[in-house]
Design a protein around this nucleic acid. Structure first.
Lengths: 140, 140
DNA sequence: CGAAACCCGATTATTTTTATCGGGATTTTG
DNA sequence: CAAAATCCCGATAAAAATAATCGGGTTTCG
């Protein structure tokens, strides 16, 4: 149960963009400077753009910028864009896939777990990360 | 971000074993009866055994049984056994992998998210599932 | 115009997941 | 004891997902 590099790269890029918000559009080259594979990151940024998380300016002096304020962009949205929706079992998103009909005893649990995890991921924004916000783990 | 079939099969098997707790060891054949690939499930049950979650009896009339009470076996432990520890970035488990040293600004966040998710997964036991326990999502 | 940059579909390489195979070991039962 | 039931296990194969690369196209600035 770990994040693929897709998600890690995307988060990296988004944090980078949040940090350089004031500096105008950031070219791919610059974003990838910490050693990320440039062309692969380009794909991911394309996905992020199509999800409305970043905007782009083409041509010389162009690059990528955050769409909106870092305080409104959550880790959950970034991961959802790049890794697809969180789900613990198919039936958590799409009822009835398992063929057991609606009396699948465990569906409630998967749904609960999925929603809880989503709530946590939606609870952290880019500015929380930049500002080193103190966290508190919710008791189970 | 979805669970692989490994995790799903393992959970399925564990729930099955919890349901048939009173009926003695359950043979692989029976556990896989809902259409899971038998030999693949066998591998997974091996993993679960090595993790101390199930015990086995060999020979005729043998099979698999839960190790311990369903109320003490959490979804988190089952997933950890089959899918490895939850981690959002390598540095959440093993500091310093990213090469940024200890001042990696984002590590705190990954750690928080990882621990929160773990807390949720540890908060649900097999008996919660069987008994249809009511859940309440923690506000973010 | 030419350089800087994004855009994008296609392809390839690598890794992980999902199985399957074939035989071995253990235990009950007749 | 022999046969049947069952777990055990390393190896291999097939399929899918991930990660990365390629090659060319388009836009924009100076």
């Amino acid at each position: 149960m770990k994040l693929s590099t897709r998600g890690q790269y995307a988060l990296h890029a988004m944090i980078f963009l949040a940090k350089h918000r004031q500096d105008g559009p950031q070219p791919l080259r610059t974003i990838a400077e910490d050693g990320l594979p440039e062309q692969y990151l380009e794909q991911l940024l394309g996905t992020l753009r199509r999800s409305g998380l970043v905007s782009t300016v083409r041509g010389a002096a162009g690059g990528y910028s955050l769409c909106g304020d870092p305080s409104e962009i959550t880790v959950g949205r970034i991961l959802e864009a790049t890794e697809g929706p969180v789900s613990l079992a198919d039936c958590a998103v799409d009822a009835g896939v398992c063929g057991k009909g609606s009396d699948c005893q465990t569906r409630r649990t998967w749904r609960y777990l999925t929603e809880s995890i989503n709530a946590i991921l939606e609870g952290v924004t880019l500015s929380d990360i930049l500002e080193n916000k103190p966290y508190q783990i919710k008791g189970a």
